[in-house]
Design a protein around this nucleic acid. Structure first.
Length: 505
DNA sequence: GCGATCACGT
DNA sequence: ACGTGATCGCA
C-alpha cells in the first residue's frame, strides 16, 4: 500500500516482479477518488468498518509518534492491516482482470512506481546562488512597482489582496468593471489587459503580478526546498489525476515558466552534476495525433503523415485558403480551435479564448468539423459511449467514470461531455509516455548507460547523462519515445541537449 | 483550516 | 481539459 516511499530504502533489493501496490490497483479501478486509504478501501471493497491510523495517532499538531501509541492498540492495528491487505488484494486483482487492465497494471503502472521512486531519489541539482541573484533582480523591480502603484492609488494598500485592489481600481479610480466574481470585482490578467489603455496603474499591476509569481513560487519557494547536497527532490504522484497523468509537487516541476524569457530563466537554475548534461525529448502534438488515431480521421492522419505544420494545415482547410496563403492570425485562430477540440470544445469556451462572439466561434467549430468529418463522428460517439457505459477508456484500457453525464443540470452535463472527449485523448497520451518511461528506465540499465531519467512533464522526458553517452542516449530516447505504441500515424519526437534545463530545449 | 482568486505549466 | 502553489480573509 503506497510502496513508492518504501522503495527509497529498499531500492537495490526490490526487483520488478516482486512488489505490488494496492493504491495503484485502486487508482486504476477508480482514478477519481481523492485519496486512497486502507480503512476507506476496506469499507468500499470489503464492506468492513475499520479504525484508521489517524484514530490511533490523532491529527494536526497533537499527532503522536508511533512509538508513543499504546502498544496493544498498535499491535491490533498492525495485525488487522496485514490480514486486510491480503483480502483486499484478491478483490482488487479480480477487478483488474475483469476490466482488462492487467497489462496496464503489471507492465506499465507497477514498473513505473520504481521509475518514479528513482526520479524522486535522484532529484536535481539547483544553482542556489543564481536563483538568489535572479530573485534580487526581481525584488528590486517589485519594490519600485509597489511605490508606483501606491502613488497612482493615492494611498498604500495590499496589492496582493484582490479585494483591496478591486476597491482601488473600481471605486477609487472608477475604472469600468469588466467582470465580476462570486465575491466581488474580477481583477485577473484577462480583465487587466482590457483595462490597459484606461490608466497607467494597470501595466504596473500586471508587471507586479508576473514578478511576484516568479519570486514567491519559483524562487523563494524553491530555495526553501533545496537539500544539504544542493538538490531538489520533488514528488511524482501516480494516483492523483483523473486522466492518468502524473502530477508533481514540493515543488511542482511540471509548471516551470517557459513562455516569457524572464520566467524561462528559472530553468537555468536546474543543472546536472559535473561532466553530465541533460538530454530532453518531447512529443510533438501528441494529443492531436492521439485524436487523429482514435477518430481515424483520414484528413488529419494524412496531415500528420506529411509532417505538415498542423495549425497552418488546419487553417488552410477551415478558412479555405492555400497552405501558403495562411495568415498569422488565421494560424493562431486554428491553433486555438485545435486546442479547444482536444479539451472538448464549447462555442462559449472558444469565444472566450479568441475574444470573439459565440456565433463566430460556432462557425469556426462547424467549419472544423466539416473538414475533419470523422472527428465530428468520434465526438458524438464517445459521448454516447460514456453515457451508455458510465465510463470512457484510453488505448491501454485506463478507465474514468463520468457520472456528470447523467446530471439534469445542463452545465454539469456539458462538463461531462467535455470530459468524455478529453479523457481518452489526455489519458492515452499519458499511457504512451508512461510506456516510454518504463522502457527507457530498463534500457538505460541493460545497456549500462550512465544516464538517469529525472523529469517528466506530460509530453516531455529529461534524462541526466554523462557527457560521453549523450549521443547514444539521444538515439535511445528518440527511438523508445517514438515507438512506445503503434498508432495509425507516426509519433514525432524532438530531441535536445544542454548544460542546463533551459538549454535542453 | 479552508474556500476563493490568481497564475504557472501541458 | 488536467494539475500545484501562493496569498487573502474568514471561520
Amino acid at each position: 500500500y503506497d510502496i513508492k516511499s518504501d522503495l527509497y530504502y529498499l531500492f537495490e533489493d526490490v526487483n520488478f516482479k516482486n512488489y505490488e501496490d494496492l493504491t495503484i490497483a485502486e487508482y486504476l479501478i477508480d482514478p477519481s477518488r481523492s485519496k486512497y486509504e486502507i480503512d476507506k478501501s476496506a469499507k468500499i471493497y470489503l464492506n468492513r468498518n475499520l479504525h484508521s491510523l489517524e484514530d490511533l495517532v490523532g491529527k494536526g499538531k497533537k499527532t503522536l509518534s508511533l512509538s508513543d501509541v499504546d502498544k496493544e492498540k498498535l499491535g491490533s492495528y498492525i495485525s488487522m492491516y496485514l490480514s486486510l491487505t491480503e483480502d483486499l488484494r484478491e478483490k482488487l486483482l479480480s477487478y483488474i482482470d475483469e476490466r482488462d487492465m492487467k497489462e496496464l497494471y503489471y507492465d506499465i503502472e507497477l514498473p513505473l512506481v520504481k521509475v518514479l521512486a528513482s526520479m524522486e531519489r535522484e532529484g536535481i541539482y539547483v544553482n542556489k546562488d543564481y536563483l538568489i541573484e535572479l530573485g534580487e533582480e526581481f525584488q528590486k523591480e517589485l519594490d519600485e512597482l509597489e511605490k508606483e502603484i501606491y502613488s497612482y492609488a493615492g494611498y498604500e494598500f495590499n496589492i496582493n489582496s484582490t479585494k483591496q485592489l478591486g476597491e482601488v481600481l473600481f471605486e477609487k479610480l472608477n475604472l469600468p468593471v469588466i467582470k465580476k466574481t462570486k465575491t466581488g470585482y474580477s481583477t485577473n490578467a484577462e480583465v487587466l489587459h482590457k483595462l490597459k489603455g484606461s490608466h497607467e496603474i494597470i501595466e504596473a499591476i500586471l508587471r507586479y503580478r508576473t514578478l511576484k509569481k516568479l519570486t514567491t513560487t519559483y524562487i523563494d519557494g524553491f530555495i526553501t526546498l533545496i537539500s544539504e547536497e544542493g538538490k531538489i527532490h520533488s514528488l511524482f504522484n501516480q494516483n492523483i489525476t483523473a486522466t492518468g497523468r502524473i502530477s508533481s509537487q514540493d515543488p511542482n516541476l511540471q509548471n516551470i515558466p517557459i513562455k516569457t524569457e524572464e520566467g524561462r530563466k528559472i530553468r537555468k537554475a536546474f543543472i546536472p552534476p559535473e561532466n553530465y548534461s541533460f538530454v530532453g525529448g518531447d512529443y510533438s502534438q501528441v494529443e492531436l495525433r492521439v485524436l487523429a488515431h482514435l477518430s481515424g480521421d483520414e484528413v488529419m492522419i494524412e496531415a500528420f503523415k506529411e509532417d505538415a505544420d498542423i495549425h497552418t494545415k488546419t487553417a488552410s482547410e477551415v478558412f479555405h485558403v492555400d497552405f501558403e496563403d495562411v495568415t498569422p492570425l488565421q494560424r493562431s485562430n486554428a491553433k486555438a480551435v485545435n486546442f479547444g477540440i482536444v479539451y472538448g470544445i464549447s462555442d462559449y469556451g472558444l469565444s472566450q479564448d479568441l475574444d470573439i462572439s459565440r456565433k463566430e466561434a460556432k462557425e469556426y467549430i462547424d467549419n472544423y468539423l466539416d473538414t475533419y468529418k470523422e472527428i465530428k463522428t468520434y465526438m458524438a460517439d464517445i459521448v454516447e459511449t460514456g453515457k451508455k457505459q458510465g465510463y470512457v477508456e484510453t488505448i491501454m484500457h485506463r478507465r474514468r467514470y463520468i457520472p456528470e453525464l447523467e446530471s439534469k443540470n445542463r452545465n454539469i452535463r456539458g462538463f461531462g461531455e467535455r470530459v468524455a472527449l478529453n479523457t481518452p485523448i489526455q489519458g492515452s497520451a499519458a499511457d504512451i509516455i508512461k510506456i516510454a518511461m518504463v522502457e527507457i528506465y530498463q534500457e538505460l540499465q541493460e545497456k549500462q548507460l550512465r544516464g538517469k531519467l529525472i523529469l517528466q512533464v506530460h509530453d516531455e522526458l529529461i534524462i541526466q547523462v554523462e557527457d560521453g553517452d549523450i549521443d547514444e542516449v539521444k538515439e535511445l530516447l528518440s527511438n523508445v519515445m517514438s515507438h512506445a505504441v503503434e498508432l495509425d500515424l507516426p509519433l514525432k519526437v524532438d530531441i535536445n541537449s544542454g548544460k542546463t534545463w533551459y538549454d535542453a530545449k
